[in-house]
Design a protein around this nucleic acid. Structure first.
Lengths: 186, 186
DNA sequence: AAAATAATGTAGCGAGTGCTACAAGAGGGA
DNA sequence: TCCCTCTTGTAGCACTCGCTACATTATTTT
């Protein structure tokens, strides 16, 4: 037992910086994130952030990846599986859930990063993929029973609710709710 | 006839700066837009941009508004009205259309700005509303005949396609196409 | 022609950016 | 004890940011 502790201790300290920086990203977005404010949020210095993560870009990527890793677990605790009920009610519940202030920053961050991907910023693509996959896995578990291909049903649900949320964020909640009702209404 | 020309000439010069700056925003996004690069794109100086528009924020807002004003007209020339055909085919056509390189920057910009709105950046809200409304008006005109409330049908179409596009931009085209097929397939 | 107004260039300010050189403290291994 | 690696603070560099003061040139009005 020659060198057990040192590596462990470094890792622990470094990872402790991630949660406050993730919170900062959620509140301010990736574009507003610069080293000094991030360091202040994490209770350290810009010097240390670069020391630990190599560069600002690598840091942001790692924080986003850390956040993406936690999405599925967080979502899992939010809603119990719906073994019965209509898809219409479920869609409305999902819409209202993702719309509320607690989850809005997550959605805003996902949209911001997705917009980067749309411009070919492929260093964020893996993050986006993981988040979308997490949403899918989550819905597969909790969505009411469906007929036919479950994966397609989940993709349909996610697309409809996300599209409705886009219209809602653009100040058109009425359109969003109309879309949901038309998509899953009787 | 005391003061006919001066105001006219000033306006003309000023408005001529908008198209190249709009192009810059489309290519680089609002967050990457700073005065000097914008001025270079428009063939003028940062000094002049502030002189004409008052501030950078007012400038970006005005350029976005100018772009939003043009969206509906541009979309109108893109697709003839579909007097017949299935909604499934139409949705796929719409998805492929908005996905192509020519229109992707528009979508990326809309998502970026919508994300700002989701964080409460309400100076962009009017822009988002106008763009969404333009899409609606466009679809009302060109979408195949539908039963029931046409506005709801359009909102449904838009939500589904935009949601699918979000999954596509996040690197999950397969999910996107599954969602479209499930939403409008037979 | 004189005066007033509009338009533009030059230079720069204070603040913030990512990042780095340098040195010093801290801790354990020899 | 000495040394060596890890960690951290200080100071600063070169750059960009939005914006402005000042001066100068056009153009128009009187």
């Amino acid at each position: 037992m020659s060198k057990p502790a040192p590596a462990a201790k470094r890792r622990i300290d470094r990872d402790a910086l991630l949660p406050p920086m993730a919170q900062f990203l959620l509140e301010n977005g990736v574009h507003a994130a610069s080293l000094r404010p991030l360091a202040k949020a994490a209770g350290t210095s810009d010097r240390m952030l670069v020391y630990h993560f190599g560069s600002k870009d690598a840091l942001v990527e790692e924080v986003l990846m850390w956040l993406a890793d936690r999405v599925q677990a967080q979502l899992g605790q939010l809603v119990p599986a719906q073994k019965e009920g209509t898809l219409a009610d479920f869609a409305t519940m999902l819409f209202d859930l993702l719309r509320q202030p607690m989850l809005r920053p997550h959605l805003a961050l996902l949209m911001e990063v997705s917009a980067c991907c749309a411009r070919g910023q492929d260093n964020f693509l893996i993050v986006c993929q993981q988040v979308v996959d997490s949403y899918h896995t989550w819905l597969v578990d909790i969505m009411p029973p469906t007929e036919g291909d479950r994966t397609a049903a989940v993709a349909h649900m996610l697309a409809t609710v996300e599209g409705a949320l886009m219209q809602d964020m653009a100040g058109r909640e009425a359109f969003a709710r109309m879309a949901l009702e038309r998509a899953f209404g009787d």
